[in-house]
Each structure stands twice: as structure tokens, then as C-alpha cells.
Design a protein around this nucleic acid. Structure first.
Length: 232
DNA sequence: TTCCATGATTATCC
DNA sequence: GGATAATCATGGAA
């Protein structure tokens, strides 16, 4: 059922090697796919996955063996009993069925715990928090410029987010994260950010001044507009 | 090593 | 579905 599918998808069950790396690659892609990062971490991940896989298979084999041994045992018992009382093939069949069901429920548990192990491994290795990199200086500058020049309403539209993402070479969700963090942290401690706020206010003021002086002379101090639309 | 900054995730709310 | 608040986990300066 579901567990089987999951184990298959993770490359734990299913064909030998290769599946593991395919799963790792798929997982990396799902995790957001940084273009050029830790092959070391991935090989580590693969090694751990292979370990889980090996344990899973050896346990599975053990269970299968135990199952067939036990079945044989029961069959022998029944055969012995058949000397003293009549035993129908139906009864034997039913017994075998019961045994198999019992063992498959044990296997289910094995699958479940294997799934859990894989999930833990995944979260340990692929949780993005574990490989956080600060954005580069220029990116934070761009984001801060936007934030402080829209301090009254620091909620960039979807298009604005896309543009910021492009400018900063990050994803739109990273932009959203950044603004989410910034808003809450700013609100919590406005004092701490005062200096930064002044800095960026000045910067945008200088920008505006240079732009307006470059354009012409007619300007009003409160133009709520910084239309920089660069489509590529 | 410690401590703060920071990006990401999670739970919860609307 | 996006925003907020709390929290996690790491980077990097002190």
C-alpha cells in the first residue's frame, strides 16, 4: 500500500544501486535544488540511506525465512496430526493463510519503522535550515531598500516579489521569507533598526535627488513612486 | 566558544 | 493562500 510506494520512491525497496542516487537526486530537486552544493553531504546521505536499505532487506529476508520455516513446521505438525484425525486441505490452507497474514503484519511494522528512519534521515540532511547561507550584500541591500522605502506598507505584490527575486538572484519564496522575517523583527524592535532605517532613507533620498537632477528640475518631495521596471 | 544575526520551517490565524 | 509569531539551526563576529 502506501508504505510500499514510499519505500520504493525512496529507493529502499526496489532495484539495487542507482535507485538510491536517483532518489537522492529527486529529493534534492524537491528540496529546492541549490545548483552547486555539497556532494559530500549527498554521498553521506546516500551512505546512510544504503545502510537503512541494507538493514531493511536483511530483516525482510529474515522474516521471510522465519515465515517459511514456521509454515513448514506447522505443516509437519498437521501431517502428524492427520494420522490421528482427518485434516482437510482447506484447513491446511487456512492455517497457512493465518501464518502469512501474521508475518505480513510484522513486515508492515518493519516497513513502517524503515519509513520513519528514512523520513528522519531526510529531514536531518535536507532541511534547508541546516545549510542556510546568508544572502550576498547586494541582495540584502536591494531588499532593505525596498523595505524601508515602503515602510508604511512593506508588502510587495507578487510582481514586486518576482522582480526583487530576479534582482537578488534568489527565489520568490526566499523574498517572502525575507519580508516576513523583516516585518516581524522590525516591528518587535523598531529602535534597533532605526539606524538602518535612516541609512536607507538617506540612500533612497540621494538616489531620488540624483535621478531628478538628471531628469530635469521639476520635482515634488513626496512622490510615492519609484518606478523601475526592467523587463528582461 | 559564545552570542547575536539571519534564513527557513512550523503552527496558527484570518 | 498569505501573514504573523515562535522556533529552529547555522553563519560569523567577538
Amino acid at each position: 500500500m502506501r508504505l510500499d510506494n514510499m519505500l520504493l520512491a525512496e529507493g529502499v525497496s526496489g532495484p539495487e544501486k542507482g535507485a538510491a542516487s536517483a532518489a537522492a537526486a529527486a529529493v534534492a530537486a524537491a528540496a529546492g535544488g541549490s545548483p552547486n552544493d555539497g556532494s559530500i553531504e549527498h554521498s553521506d546521505y546516500r551512505a546512510k540511506l544504503a545502510q537503512i536499505r541494507q538493514i531493511y532487506h536483511s530483516e525482510l529476508e529474515k522474516y521471510e525465512q522465519a515465515c517459511s520455516e514456521f509454515t513448514n513446521h506447522v505443516m509437519n505438525l498437521l501431517r502428524e496430526q492427520s494420522r490421528t484425525r482427518p485434516i482437510s486441505p482447506k484447513e491446511i490452507e487456512r492455517m497457512v493463510g493465518i501464518i502469512h497474514r501474521k508475518f505480513s503484519s510484522i513486515q508492515m511494522q518493519l516497513k513502517q519503522s524503515t519509513c520513519e528512519a528514512v523520513m528522519i534521515l531526510r529531514s536531518r540532511f535536507l532541511d534547508a535550515r541546516r545549510k542556510r547561507r546568508n544572502f550576498n550584500k547586494q541582495a540584502t541591500e536591494v531588499l532593505n531598500e525596498y523595505f524601508y522605502s515602503h515602510l508604511a506598507n512593506p508588502y510587495p505584490s507578487e510582481e514586486a516579489k518576482e522582480e526583487l527575486a530576479k534582482k537578488c538572484a534568489i527565489t520568490v519564496s526566499q523574498v517572502s521569507n525575507w519580508f516576513g522575517n523583516k516585518r516581524i523583527r522590525y516591528k518587535k524592535n523598531i529602535g534597533k533598526f532605526q539606524e538602518e532605517a535612516n541609512l536607507y532613507a538617506m540612500k533612497t533620498a540621494v538616489d531620488a535627488a540624483s535621478v531628478s537632477s538628471q531628469a530635469s528640475q521639476a520635482n515634488s518631495p513626496g512622490t510615492p513612486n519609484s518606478g523601475t521596471h526592467s523587463h528582461m
